[in-house]
Structures are given as C-alpha cells and as structure tokens.
C-alpha cells in the first residue's frame, strides 16, 4: 500500500487532495469571518443611538430587545413631576436617584433618571428649565415595588405607576448619560448595570465554517479508503475498471 501511495498516479491524487484541503480550510475560514462580521454588524446596530420615540412607541409596553439600547431625546424637564427614588447608594454612599420626566415635542413624557445625589436638598436636584438634548440608555420599569404610590416626592422604584405619569408617558425610562447644554450642579450619572440585549447568532455561517473544515478531514478519509481499495483490488484487477 505504501509503495502504491508513492506511485506517480497516487502522488498526483495526494497533491489534488492537499489542494482540496487547502481550499476547504480557506472556505471554512471565509464562513468563520462572515460569522464574525454578522455578529459585529448586529452589535454595531445595537450600539447605534436611536431617538427614543422611534424605539419606544407611546402606549406600547417596552420590548426586551430595546432594553439597554442607546437612545437620545430632546425636550423640556417637567420639574413639577420630579421624584426621588430613596435608598439608592453610589460607591457605598447612601443617597437618592433623581427622576425627572422629560416632555418631548409631541407632548409625551419619558422618565429620565438623571443621576445620584446624597440627599434631596443637594444643589443638583433642580432640573434645568431650558430645552435639553439628552442621551442615555433605555431601561424597563423597575419591577420591584412597582405599584407602590409616592410618599410626597419619594418613590420606592421607577415605574409609570409609582411616578404617576399618566397615559401620555412612554413605558420605561432613560438612564441619563449626557445632557446638552451641560448644567451644573447636576446629579452624578449612575453607570448602567443592565446588560445589553443579546444579538442572534449566525448559526448558518458558523455551521458552514465547521462543515468546510470537516470536509477537509473527509478528503483524507476518502484518499485513504480509495488507496486501500486500490491496493487490495490490484491483487485481482478485474473489478477495477469494469464499472466505468
């Protein structure tokens, strides 16, 4: 069998097999790159900033795919509806979160968690009265203590019910990242702890990559089987060519 493998005919076949294997490895690599590209494109799509009214239609509950998306909004803070979420600490210091609804140009409201302050009397608590453009991360209503009513200006959790924003409010809230124009003093932005929504995995490209690589193993198997058959058939050569 070994002597047969080094015959001219079988060396040519081995060479062709190696070429096939190299080709298959490249094709698998191409599908692997494609898998990565699709994932990168999907993640970039998620990271892209979208106006909140496009992502979060009025009167509809927030969908899980939009939670964690970067959003922008333009409007005016409604200081009269501002609430403080109590018992929220930042870096180990106890304090409150300042939640001020933002009124968009269409009149709808979206709650904005502007950040952390040590207490309700801290100077940053007063929201700017000018038109602002904000960016932030879209979040779903906090589910715990969701329905508990406000105690004066204190609330236990951020939700449309607890903030009593009414029917003109969009679901969920924006966790503020930036505000233009910048006003000082202001609450300290609280970093996002919620994870970004996951993107669909391109299984098809992933499996194609794996299959191309398996095919290159397959080439080796076929070569060996063929060589074995050739070596054993040549002892009684009648079978070798009668099928063709």
């Amino acid at each position: 069998m070994l002597r047969l493998a080094f015959s001219a005919k079988w060396l040519v076949r081995a060479g062709l097999g190696v070429l096939l294997i190299i080709g298959f490895i490249f094709l698998g690599h191409w599908q692997w790159e494609r898998t990565q590209d699709v994932l990168a494109a999907e993640r970039a799509g998620l990271a892209e900033q979208v106006a909140v009214d496009q992502l979060n239609p009025l009167g509809q509950p927030i969908v899980s795919e939009t939670v964690g998306r970067a959003v922008s909004a333009r409007g005016q803070y409604r200081s009269d509806m501002q609430r403080f979420v109590v018992h929220r600490s930042l870096n180990g210091k106890s304090g409150v979160w300042v939640v001020t609804p933002l009124q968009l140009s269409d009149g709808s409201l979206i709650a904005v968690m502007r950040g952390w302050l040590p207490n309700k009397q801290a100077p940053g608590a007063v929201a700017p009265s000018v038109d602002v453009e904000i960016t932030g991360v879209l979040q779903a209503d906090e589910s715990f203590y969701k329905g508990s009513p406000p105690d004066g200006s204190n609330v236990a959790a951020i939700s449309r019910q607890s903030l009593q924003l009414g029917a003109t409010a969009r679901d969920g809230f924006i966790r503020l990242s930036t505000q233009t124009p910048v006003t000082t003093p202001a609450p300290i932005p609280v970093p996002v702890v919620a994870q970004q929504g996951s993107v669909p995995f391109p299984l098809q490209n992933f499996f194609y990559a794996i299959q191309w690589w398996i095919f290159s193993l397959f080439v080796i198997g076929v070569y060996l089987r063929w060589l074995w058959l050739d070596a054993h058939d040549s002892s009684h050569s009648s079978l070798d060519d009668d099928a063709n």
Binding site: Q204, F207, Q211, I214, F215, F218, R225, L239, D240, N244
Partner: peptide, 27 residues
C-alpha cells in the same frame, strides 16, 4: 435559515453514504 442549516448537515451525511456507495460500485 434552519432549513439551510439542516441541508448543510444532511449534505454531510449524503457525502458519506454517497462516497461509500461509489466505492462499493467502483465508480
């Protein structure tokens, strides 16, 4: 998309049984 994935793996099995038959028939 799932159909194409199923085809990918079905074709893999098709290759194996196809080569096996071709060898047996000395094609």
């Amino acid at each position: 998309g799932a159909l194409w994935i199923v085809h990918g793996w079905a074709y893999f099995l098709y290759l194996i049984v196809g080569v096996d038959l071709a060898f047996r028939l000395r094609y």
